[in-house]
Nucleic acid binder design. Structure first.
Length: 576
RNA sequence: GCGCCCGUAGCUCAGUUGGAUAGAGCACCAGACUACGAAUCUGGGGGUCGGGAGUUCGAAUCUCUCCGGGCGCGCCA
């Protein structure tokens, strides 16, 4: 389906036929349409290994290249590029392919069913998700959709950090609110506990379920059960927030459960067997020595053997595991579950942990399982250009739910992947409600709605002509030939390559840019019809031409809707 | 002090994994509606790709080094 791949195979066959060695060369869209449709650097790449000038090699191959199916012309240009122009028959065949594939155009089997684990969100279960979580949630979810669409078997996962001091604080916070709700006058909430009304709600539910049975017992007795109760309540909250956003992991892995079943011991035993754990003393960080620094002997992982800067501690001085030890065990578990690729989606504040985690995975998988860690930078929440103030300390922050309720899930989802994950993103509540080109969600959906609109109108104009995509595949598509129409077809035919590239790079934002550009091409072509009515899609009295052009409209609609489906965004059929 | 990320038009950002003359949008200027939906479109000006050096046929992209911004830096997760 990705015609660049097909052409590369054809070109490679010509290379072999003239007796040149194989090489990794590129087949790409020509940068300038004046150059042609497709360009390859094969002659320049081969010139290095063959020790002959690119031009000479190109001349050697040119007659073979011109004979490739679908190639209308091939020319040598510039420093040794070979530019191809593809035949109109070739482009019409692409269009037919789109009409045949429908919403599935662009799907492929690149991944060949390989198992990929994508872990995302993994927010601590201490409260509802805030707007900062939206980016990682959507990024992970869209990346998962994208990987599935190119043939990977994807498992979407959430790691619940339910084993540390934070969930103890959560349990104490719940107990405080519980006592409060049962009538005790407690005054201000002690520092270190979680404010926020959601725990008042949880306390009231607790009373409904358990009455006052946790009131008069010592902390050692109420803490473990209330911790479980609180984590469960918070995870319910979080899951519901995620569902509101259209995000749904299928696997929720509990750190507590992992530790309880000996996962940490197993992972560390594996590392110990391979001689990667030792007792040692770390140097203080240079130039920033903490005031309370004391040399301390710790259990360390030899991360430096796998590219990290220092060896990393696995055990705290009180004998319990560090967070890193738990994460090592968790990734060991993922490796043992047989994933070929691991992807973690983290917030920017965790970027300091990338190297050590990758070192651990490299060590535990003997270099076989790549771990790609995608860092999501901050989202600057604005309203009409003004930053929205939030105070997490006071428990007042803009929740994910607030934002989804305000602008809708489709808008949040699309906007979160309109930037590369590793650059900060401005999210302006006023702007995304605008119906203008400033608002990319609107602009893309508007293009789709226009497609739907013209299809409705056409059916009214020709009540007896079948305009379904299946019928249009056989329509006289050769009636298409206007340069604007061919531009659109070329743009459409580039979709599979865009999907493949985005999937290989784990960069879903590329799809957003593609869709914006495709929408732009479509709007532009639309307006050519304003200036020249002969270019409109619906031509009264010419059902054949209308049918051919509606084939193009259907194709645009399919690609936009298929792209939006990867984003998990509805393709609107009308704008209001 | 060290590590990672970022630095591209006045602003917000792309740049197809090293390719040809670096591209969009916003803003600014000049135009296009008795409409297949003008919520849009057409044209114009605007650049030392943070600076410098290197690698090669060729660098925004790779290496080194400075400058600037963000995040992080042994018992927080």
């Amino acid at each position: 389906m990705n015609y660049f791949n097909k052409l590369r195979d054809d070109i490679a066959a010509v290379v072999a036929a003239v007796g040149l060695p194989g090489a990794a060369f590129a087949v790409e869209p020509a940068r300038d349409p004046a150059h042609g449709d497709v360009a390859t650097n094969v002659a320049m790449i081969l010139s290095k290994v063959a020790g002959r000038p690119p031009k000479e090699l190109a001349d050697l191959m040119i007659s073979g290249l011109k004979a490739i199916d679908g190639v209308a012309s091939a020319d040598v240009a510039g420093p040794g590029f070979i530019n191809f122009r593809l035949s109109s028959g070739f482009w019409l065949a692409q269009l037919q392919q789109i009409l045949k594939s429908g919403l599935d155009y662009g799907r492929c089997d690149l991944g060949q069913g390989a198992k990929v684990n994508i872990e995302y969100v993994s927010a601590n279960p201490t409260g509802p998700l805030h707007v900062g979580h939206a980016r990682g949630s959507v990024f992970g979810d869209v990346l998962a959709n994208l990987m599935e669409s190119v043939g990977y078997h994807v498992v979407r996962e959430y790691y619940i950090n339910d084993a540390g001091a934070q969930v103890d604080a959560l349990a104490r916070s719940l107990h405080w609110r519980y006592r409060e709700a049962l009538g005790e006058a407690l005054g201000d909430l002690p520092s270190g506990l979680y404010p926020g009304d959601y725990l008042r709600d949880a306390a009231r539910e607790l009373i409904a379920n358990a009455g006052s049975r946790w009131l008069a017992v010592p902390e050692d007795d109420w803490l473990p059960p209330l911790r479980l109760y609180a984590i469960d309540a918070m995870m319910t909250l979080i899951r519901n927030d995620l569902l509101e956003l259209g995000v749904g992991q299928s696997v929720f892995s509990s750190e507590h459960a992992l530790v309880a079943r000996g996962g940490v011991d197993e992972a560390l035993a594996y590392l110990a067997e391979h001689g990667l754990i030792y007792q040692g003393v770390l140097e203080p960080p240079k130039g920033k020595k903490p005031e309370d620094w004391e040399p301390r002997e710790q259990t360390l992982f030899r991360a430096t053997q796998f590219g990290d800067d220092v060896d990393r501690p696995l055990r705290k001085s009180d004998g319990t595991w560090t967070y890193f030890a738990g994460d090592v065990a968790y990734h060991f578990d993922k490796i043992r579950r047989g994933f070929a690729v691991l992807i973690d989606v983290w917030g920017a504040d965790h970027s300091g942990y990338i190297k050590r985690m990758q070192a651990a995975v490299k060590a535990m998988s003997e270099g076989r399982v790549p771990l790609d860690i995608k860092i999501c930078q901050l989202v600057n929440l604005l309203d009409q250009g003004q930053p929205l103030k939030m105070s997490k300390r006071a428990g007042r922050f803009v929740t994910l739910r607030d934002v989804v309720d305000a602008v809708g899930k489709d808008v949040v989802r699309f906007m979160m992947v309109t930037r590369r994950n590793d650059v900060p993103l401005d999210f302006d509540l006023a702007k995304v409600r605008e119906q203008s080109k400033d608002n990319p969600v609107f602009y893309v959906q508007y293009a789709h709605a226009r497609c739907c609109s013209v299809l409705r109108n056409a059916q009214e104009a020709f009540p007896n002509v079948p305009f379904e995509p299946a019928a249009l595949g056989a329509a006289p598509l050769t009636r298409l030939g206007d340069p604007g129409e061919l531009r659109l077809i070329r743009a459409l035919a580039g979709w599979p390559r865009t999907v493949e590239g985005a999937a290989q790079a784990h960069e879903p934002h590329r799809l957003a840019f593609y869709l914006f550009e495709l929408a732009s091409e479509f709007h532009a072509h639309w307006h050519r019809g304003n200036d020249d009515p002969g270019l409109r899609f619906i031509i009264a009295g010419d059902p054949d031409l209308t049918a051919a052009r509606l084939g193009l409209v259907h194709a645009v609609r399919f690609v936009i809707a298929g792209g939006l489906r990867i984003f998990g965004v509805e393709a609107a059929t009308e704008m209001h």
